[in-house]
Design a protein around this nucleic acid. Sequence first.
DNA 1: TCTGGCACTCGCGCGCCGTGAGTGCCAGGA
DNA 2: TCCTGGCACTCACGGCGCGCGAGTGCCAGA
Lengths: 338, 338
Amino acid sequence: MLSERRLKVLRAIVQDYVGTEEPVGSKALTERHNLGVSPATVRNDMAALEDEGFIAQPHTSAGRIPTDKGYRLFVDKLAGVKPMTAPERRAIQNFLEGAVDLDDVVARTVRLLAQLTRQVAVVQYPSLTRSTVRHVELLSLAPARLMLVLITDTGRVEQRMVDCPAPFGEASLADLRARLNSRVAGRRFADVPGLVEDLPEAFEAEDRGTVSTVLSTLLETLVEENEERLMIGGTANLTRFGHDFPLTIRPVLEALEEQVVLLKLLGEAKDPGVTVRIGHENAHEGLNSTSVVSVGYGSGGEAVAKLGVVGPTRMDYPGTMGAVRAVARYVGQILAES
Amino acid sequence: MLSERRLKVLRAIVQDYVGTEEPVGSKALTERHNLGVSPATVRNDMAALEDEGFIAQPHTSAGRIPTDKGYRLFVDKLAGVKPMTAPERRAIQNFLEGAVDLDDVVARTVRLLAQLTRQVAVVQYPSLTRSTVRHVELLSLAPARLMLVLITDTGRVEQRMVDCPAPFGEASLADLRARLNSRVAGRRFADVPGLVEDLPEAFEAEDRGTVSTVLSTLLETLVEENEERLMIGGTANLTRFGHDFPLTIRPVLEALEEQVVLLKLLGEAKDPGVTVRIGHENAHEGLNSTSVVSVGYGSGGEAVAKLGVVGPTRMDYPGTMGAVRAVARYVGQILAES
DNA sequence: TCTGGCACTCGCGCGCCGTGAGTGCCAGGA
DNA sequence: TCCTGGCACTCACGGCGCGCGAGTGCCAGA
């Protein structure tokens, strides 16, 4: 186990390195933090920390930089979450309250997160799976063609075309619409399949084919939407990454374009609070030199989607975690109100 | 006026520079293109071209590179549009045909354009202004709260909440829905205002307030949607920009995040065919070292939105223009079918 | 266990210089 | 008048050598 002082040294190294972006040496450390010991002592501690794999030297006779393992220890044990100041919180709230619809909420959230953290922001659209149905609408476009519109409690709207096996009268349509809504309105998506399976039986034989088609389209929409959408922003912040650019930034941009990758990334974080994945902890190779800070958010008490930021492993973890947590909280509020 | 040969020299310079990314000298030119004259002659021509401002030297005793003006002449007079090959066209068509809904069409188009041109692709969602209304739906969410859903012929769906000044009965709602649709279904957005202005008069005095509110929300939706959405992709291609990275790429990324900027960029191109804006021709400062190749596309014969790519001024104009034009054509077909 | 001292390492920045691609100009020839 | 070959000149680029100094490891003494 590392002594108290060595942990202090590690914390100081992380803080300095995050601030200066340059390897930190023993002398500079003792000058900037009053550790109460001499550089020589710190050197011994650093040697020990290096043996344990928490820090490393880019090359002999240079200062030390934290390793992924070092950041991990820092995040887990040495640093808290830095809360937002009151003015910052007010600014967040004001900015988000101006949103007019769901798209706008997500767009504003992305911008906000990117600005606050000066990193790349990723916001997942509120997921359908845990949402409830607000309304299902059926429109007749042609004798044998319907449009199915699904409206969720988060304000999201999905539409699908339905080609009917047989013409479907207006009366039947109104009937189906009414029955469908009385069964599923206000219910959770997960419960919908069980609630509608016997619905075709209530109709005349000639209409059953169409009813079944409509229902399966509805269920399909619920499932398909698990391939959820997300919005990213603040990619310009990647330019602050480092000096050895092209090599670092390219794989990150590529990863960010793969929505699948990002969704997986966000999905993996199971922690109820803020989750941090550092460097090689990220499965995707292109993100091996980045850290992902994410958290769930939702309209009720329950999380329905995730949001977070992607930045260099050398990032201000306490500040970033604080910003991510605060934004998630306020987005949740906004969603609950609308 | 420039002689025939000098134009040939300019064309050769552009082609070589686009290929090699390095300033091109007189000797290399005569070797790679059989111009039928000696390097010395070419040198004289180059001096003349430089006087006219078509090419420039990065520094004394280096080769020449085209200026924005040089590229402009190249695009206008010296190069055609390189058509896609048959296999390429088939690939485009196949890829786009797999799309399941409007979002998917746009997403696939972006990916496709980015891959074909190896540049940043920008695709505007089909605009509402020139579209027609397919259906307007009204749903009652609470006694004095309605949801307005607008469905367009391009398959786009917009929804808005409406808070009514007074409770609005189901019968009135059905009446309004029917009247509204009979008037506006199939009509162009631009015509809608004139078609509905006298609608409140058909209702009882107590309902008129609500009807007016609904109508103004509808009109607002049509107008507001002029702040159209777009999707971008292929930003990883920016890493191929040049060697002097951060300075070049940063403003571009920033500009790409400003949807307003991009929409203006696309909107400015009035040409019915492919439009090219080179370097400083772009109003936005961050895009001064990029060229934008854009074109309108649409479901009918008429253009309803734009798409294009953003890349370094040093790009393969004929190829890029060909790809952009081809993709626009096929997207139009897909939209017309659905 | 901590400290001051000391010898050692080695990346970085700087200046120097040779190389070679490229240029402008000029005089002679078609 | 236009093209050509020749010639002197320019100057960015890359390699080399070197001194500086931050930083290290180790050791003897408190």
